[in-house]
Design a protein around this nucleic acid. Structure first.
Lengths: 350, 350
DNA sequence: CTGAAAGCGCTTACAG
DNA sequence: CTGAAAGCGCTTACAG
């Protein structure tokens, strides 16, 4: 247990004023003459006084902290580059503002709701981030009911009283499809995230739309849970079909990397015999061979902006929605024209 | 701002007792008759009373939270599988104990010390994790000076008053080397982490010791900053030497994956012409081709045990040091006998 | 410009 | 077994 620390009373005594005045001086409130103000600040410095956030929190009914609850299969959290970057962005805003981040990691959606409840019941946070939006997301209603400020990453489907900070991921998927079509691919598959997740289904729809615009059928879609292993399995399934694809657009990088690995293991040359694209722009995708063509999202900015918006809405402003620059397609080495220029896959070694 | 909530006074009034008694009943303290206890609990339930953690924190001088500060180059945090798993393990202990995790992510060591100071000055946490130990780690002294309970991951070099939770990583490195030697490799290199980091230099020493035991020279060592890109660069440097290796032991998975990618990009066949091992057992390493042979660490358990130890030392116990089961080498596909059985590298395509 | 006092919502000796 | 009161360390009307 940390040693005795001076309190506001000690400072007041040393400066020869009341506790109230110390508080006013500290918080730059009007009504303190410059001289007394200096005297108070000096006394505080001499004593090494650190105002107690605890006492302050009780008085002003604020936690000075924001809550993030991450609901992820422990298996998937490891490979996913999004949260570490997102959190780095959040912290970049919070630290200078004297706010802290309280993080809750839970295994499933049930525990997730409980975690939000607990966080606000304990008044551990003044606001919460709502990430990985789902269809009919119960967290919107819950946050409203708990009367806690929130910010959503992306627009929920259901009406939401909370500001949304969005990053268009459709454009990136469309660019990936266009790129592949431009290379001559006609059999392009999509390995999607779970349909219950908004970004899972939205990326899928973006894929389908882009295919339709190119006049191509978009029937080759496999739905997954976003796990790396799912990427390998989906690739196996797709490649075993008679109408197998010459290119696969994956909904995230870990699956794309695993799919690419599966293809190589089966004896296919990537990108010559199979082109592959990912989503998220993970660092490791840049370094595998062939380097993964992907859709880069700026998760750091997303975190920073979301934090700023949440802070503002806690402060009573009504920030409104924010649209971040859309995710961009980054072609690297894992995409190339199909071997057979007609677009028919040429497979060997299987 | 959340709505009006009942306080202990409301519960006391409804139950017809004093506030003090409500507190006693709530905290299972002796001196409350079963009947009144039930009456109080019922009143609390009727009112939907949630005791204010804030008020409680001020009274008992506790934060009911633990602090983790992660100091990582934003560039590296993304690919590293350790922290997400570690945090998942920590949360597994904290949630049932009613504790929260406050997370601070900082870019460098200077900001790191400031983050610890701030966390305890604000009394945001009752104890802190000290991860990624360095030589002469200033955090040990700082934590002692701040008088805050702490737990270190691994044993610091300098005398430390804090319990250590360690996982032997030497055995895994040694097993990797032994495996490679058994396959017939004689030119084995090591791509190490930064020497200032304890696990960086310890893994390096483990490598050197294992090589010495095998009667092999251990001169091929490149020091890096643990970034994926470093793995590629180190591999390039190593492969360009006249005495280039037939196998490389990397100090983490992201570097190993990047090194593997670099080798492939240069036209080398892995594992035939170059064997590669990683460290950390990341999910993605399992799915690339060839699947990465690696040293698996159980970061989840590490987090859980460290949290438990920290909680105990906050409670005034003196937990003592804990040794977790050592990291195990997991052979997969990225290691094989060298092409030329004499152990001399046979390189083509460069 | 400044002081004295009440209040935030708990816990915890101290009395009975 | 129970009550009344002080205390944790701040903030904030309310008076002067």
């Amino acid at each position: 247990m940390p040693a005795e620390r001076p309190t506001i009373a000690d400072v007041a005594q040393r400066a020869g004023v009341s506790k109230g005045l110390v508080s006013f001086a500290l918080n730059d409130k009007p009504g303190v003459s410059p001289q007394t103000r200096d005297r108070i600040l000096e006394a505080a410095r001499d004593l090494g006084w650190q105002p107690s956030l605890r006492a302050r929190a009780l008085s002003v009914n604020r936690a000075f902290a924001l809550g993030l609850v991450i609901s992820r299969d422990p298996e998937i959290i490891t490979g996913d580059p999004f949260y570490p970057s997102f959190i780095a962005g959040v912290e970049r805003e919070l630290a200078p503002a004297g706010q802290a981040l309280v993080l809750s990691v839970v295994p499933d959606e049930e525990a997730e709701l409980a975690a939000y409840r607990k966080l606000v019941a304990d008044r551990r946070v003044d606001g919460v981030f709502i990430t990985d939006l789902r269809h009919d997301d119960a967290r919107i209603e819950l946050a409203r009911e708990l009367n806690v400020p929130a910010v959503t990453l992306g627009h929920p489907e259901t009406p939401s009283p909370f500001p949304a900070v969005s990053m268009d991921d459709r454009a990136g998927i469309e660019a990936a499809v266009d790129h592949l079509v431009g290379l001559g691919h006609r059999h392009i598959a999509h390995v999607a995230g779970p349909a219950r997740m908004l970004h899972g289904s939205r990326r899928r729809r973006a894929f389908e739309d882009a295919m339709a615009r190119a006049g191509l059928p978009a029937g080759l879609v496999v739905e997954t849970e976003f796990r790396a292993a799912d990427g390998a399995h989906a690739t196996r399934d797709l490649l075993s079909r008679p109408d197998g694809p010459t290119a696969i657009v994956f909904a995230n990088d870990p699956m794309a990397i695993a799919g690419l690995g599966y293809a190589q293991r089966s004896g296919l040359r990537v990108p010559d015999q199979l082109s592959v694209t990912g989503f998220d722009g993970s660092d490791v995708g840049e370094h595998i061979f062939p380097a993964l063509s992907t859709v880069a999202t700026d998760a750091v900015s997303w975190g920073a902006v979301a934090a700023r918006v949440l802070l503002r809405s806690i402060a009573g402003e009504e920030p409104g929605d924010t649209d971040l620059p859309p995710a961009r397609f980054v072609p690297r080495e894992s995409t190339a024209p199909p071997t057979d220029p007609t677009g028919t896959p040429t497979r060997t070694g299987r």
